[in-house]
Amino acid sequence: MRWLRKNLIPIIGILVLVYLFIPIAVVAVLSFNKPAGKFNIAWNEFSLSAWQNICGVPGVCGSFVTSLEIGLLATLVGTIFGTMIAFALVRYRFRGRSTTNLLIFLPMATPEVVLGSSLLALFLNLAFPLGFWTVVIAHIMFIISFVVVAVKARLQGMDPRLEEAARDLYADARSTFRHVTFPLVLPGILGAALLGFSLSFDDYIISAFNAGTLVTFPIYIWGAAQRGIPVQVNALATLVFVIALTIVLVSQFINYRRRRMLEAGMSAD
């Protein structure tokens, strides 16, 4: 009983983590299923056919590639624009700062249906053709705010003395930026870009409003849900999940090892 009371919080914490992963486990398990009917909902029979023929169903891989392209393009532009705003906010004094902050905050406080539908209203009023570019435009729009917040935090957390030291050591403004500021902010920018990409790649609502006849991966899944999602979709999603998680875990592990070495190095002296 005492043991339980002492470890109550860790136990609840781990249960919550398990809860987060149950649906993912279901998706993964069902990727090895051979469904009885057209809906891949209940376990029927083990099969590797989806994995062996991952692009076997028309549209799956095509929409997947479309989402990749949109995600990369929107992330690139959104990250550059957002980083620029973050630098302006932290490093310069200018009039209109609070308007800028409001303009960054509002898209994050606006539900996706409103973001999607208002853009659609604009495109309709302008008779602008819907498709690849309208989705890219929409994704850049919502990525910017997230990037600003992340990069701003990183910049504010940086010791101002580092840049002073650079200037003291014969680095002019450009050189200071290139050799000190940028390398130090880069991890924050990359983190923001990763977040932006996963938001874009996984976005359904805003895309659905502005895609016209374009089919992104989430739009494909939504459409397929009505008539039965092909097992290949589960396989592909599982594959993405495993690859992404592996990359992040490996980089975390390398970080951890490095830190351990640092600590060992320090105590050795």
Binding site: L199, P218, I221, I229
Partner: peptide, 21 residues
């Protein structure tokens, strides 16, 4: 990392998985 990991799996598929559960 585990807390943000669900973002790596499709939102729609995860929601759909609750139909199974």
């Amino acid at each position: 990392v585990l807390v943000v990991a669900p973002f790596f799996a499709s939102f729609l598929l995860r929601t759909y998985a609750w139909r199974t559960i």
